[in-house]
Write a protein that binds this DNA or RNA. Structure first.
Lengths: 225, 225
DNA sequence: AGAATATTTGATTATTTTTTGAGGTGGCAG
DNA sequence: CTGCCACCTCAAAAAATAATCAAATATTCT
């Protein structure tokens, strides 16, 4: 889960932001610039949401300090509404700006957009199995066997990708369910089995080809990628 | 090194932009529309960054004039006050737009994105589908099926173009909404569905023709372009 | 301002996927 | 070899998601 640092002195605003982001992200909080900078040194955040108006060290300073050593995306929250101030403020190296009062939903949308952009830079490329017999296109969510589309559902595809991304490792049904359906999923073991069955059937795999059942433990992906 | 032309009357902004782009690109500057057009005639730019609000000749005019003879990517800068005009910006043939005050880092990110895209595939001015059954005219925002105009609205057209520009890739409803209605849009998912329905109806498409629903994920454009 | 268009929305229906439970299968330890 | 337990399969139920529609808003045009 991606880690986001919220730097905001007003507790109320911090809380609202947190409530909107915590379902998708791992939230850390700092109430002033000093705390922010010391937290920043200890963790690798994926995004920083930074209030401009902070006690002691200002948001601008925090932003500039961080920029000297890191390219982490920064969204700045500014209370100054006059356009003049914003233009002056826009060169501290932030990636985006929101003027208070802002809509938390918009903040969420911008957060997603920025994180998408930064994760898009190393976009997953085509995965080829068995010298081209299978081709997997992560962006397109498709799998082809000898040019013919296998038509996996999104859950099936996610399970397959999880196995591939952890190739060689045995993943328990629980680990797979956590990854694919989310932690709150509390269904039966057989759910994963059913999906695995469908994947094997749709990709026409033998039971020991690529997706191997590890008796008493789970499944693992084997074979050259 | 790729050549970028910045057309902006405010020196301060021009300077900031230049400082962010000059490491990677060869920067040229114009302070008004006239200068821009005359520079444009002498050099083959890879990208033009164009302020909408210019003295003498407006940014829109500059954009239209350039578009009459060239497919060079254009990023438009628009002032917050004319936010309603954003949509029109696309009509003038801009490839992307940023609202002032904007973040220079975001401009850099979009610049890289656009140049990466345009180096891969120089977009045709007319897109033909299924050996001419459909013809799409991006500049005119029209789609014809066997010569007959399909009469898409601008939102519908933009959704279609977004899908085509990312052909093969699955785009979530949120991504589509971000691209087409902007990040501040916070409406319901069904909005996109409704537009897709209209596009399919107006273009008389089957559900698996070109615009494919990817259950649980979004939509994608498939088929030869 | 009023009409015409376009967009958004909420409700309803339709569709697809996911989950589930039961029964069958087969490996593995004793 | 035998029985147990984990796994596989299947099909039906349940849940999730998408399509469609009509009405409410918003926008644009005249």
């Amino acid at each position: 889960m991606k880690k986001i640092l919220i730097v905001e002195d007003e507790q109320k605003i911090r809380k609202v932001i947190k409530s909107y982001l915590q379902d998708e992200y791992n939230i850390f909080e700092a109430v002033n610039g000093k705390e922010a900078l010391s937290l920043f040194k200890t963790k690798n955040f994926d995004l920083i949401i930074l209030d401009l108006m902070l006690p002691e060290i200002s948001g601008e300073e925090v932003c500039q300090t961080i920029r000297q050593v890191s390219e982490v995306p920064i969204i700045m929250l500014t209370a100054k509404s006059s356009e003049e101030n914003k233009i002056e403020g826009f060169d501290y190296g932030a990636d985006d700006y929101l003027t208070k009062p802002f809509s938390p939903r918009e903040l969420l949308a911008r957060t997603r957009a920025i994180l998408r952009r930064s994760s898009n830079q190393n976009r997953a490329s085509i995965i080829s199995l068995n010298r081209g017999e299978f081709k997997i296109y992560p962006d397109e969510m498709t799998v082809k066997k000898e040019g013919q589309e296998c038509d996996l559902t999104s859950t099936e595809f996610k399970i397959l990708m999880t196995l591939i991304n952890n190739a060689g490792q045995v993943l328990s049904r629980e680990q797979l369910a956590d990854q694919v359906m989310g932690l709150e999923f509390s269904g039966f073991d057989r759910t994963i089995d059913a999906h695995i069955k469908n994947i094997r059937k749709k990709m026409n795999l033998d039971k020991d080809q690529y997706i191997v059942t590890v008796y008493g433990a789970g499944y693992k992906f084997t074979g050259d990628i």
